[in-house]
Simulated scan of single mutants.
Amino acid sequence: MDVVVGRIAKAHGIRGELAVDVRTDSPQERFKVGSAVTTKLRDGSKRELTIAAAREHSGRLLVRFDEVLTRDVAETLRGALLVVDTADLPPIDDPDEFHDHELTGLRAELADGTVVGKVVEVVHSPAGELLELDVDGREVLVPFVLAIVPTVDVAGGRVVLDPPEGLLDED
Rank of each mutant, 00 (worst) to 15 (best):
V5P: 00
L167W: 01
V159R: 03
T70C: 12
V4Q: 10
E139D: 13
V140H: 04
A9K: 13
D21E: 10
G166A: 06
L161T: 01
T38Q: 07
A108S: 05
D88M: 07
L146F: 15
E109Q: 14
V20Y: 00
E170N: 12
H101Y: 14
T104S: 09
V68M: 01
E132I: 04
V142T: 05
A74H: 12
V20Q: 02
R23E: 08
L161C: 04
F65T: 08
A127Y: 15
F31K: 07
V3I: 08
L168S: 05
L110S: 04
I92D: 14
L141N: 09
D66L: 09
R15F: 08
S35M: 09
P150A: 05
A54R: 09
L61M: 15
T24V: 09
A11K: 08
P90K: 02
D66Q: 13
V68Q: 00
V152D: 15
E109W: 00
T151R: 11
S45H: 15
V116Q: 03
V152E: 15
L77R: 01
G16N: 10
E121M: 02
A52N: 10
V135H: 15
G44D: 03
T86C: 09
A147V: 07
I92E: 12
L167Q: 06
R78S: 00
E97R: 11
L167R: 00
R15T: 09
E48R: 14
D43M: 13
P91H: 03
G105C: 08
E48Y: 13
V119E: 02
L81G: 00
P163Y: 02
D66V: 12
A147K: 10
S125H: 06
H124E: 05
A111Y: 00
V63I: 05
L41C: 07
L62V: 13
D100W: 02
F65A: 07
V159M: 07
V120I: 07
P150N: 00
L131K: 04
V149I: 05
S58F: 15
D21R: 11
S45M: 14
V115F: 06
P95A: 01
E56Q: 12
G117A: 00
G59H: 12
V37A: 12
S58C: 14
L81T: 04
R42V: 05
G157N: 05
A74I: 09
R107E: 02
V84Y: 02
V120M: 03
R78I: 03
F144I: 09
T70M: 06
R47E: 11
G16C: 06
V20H: 02
V22T: 10
G137F: 08
F144G: 04
V159Y: 01
V33H: 07
V3R: 08
T50F: 15
E139M: 15
E165C: 09
V149M: 06
G13R: 07
H12K: 09
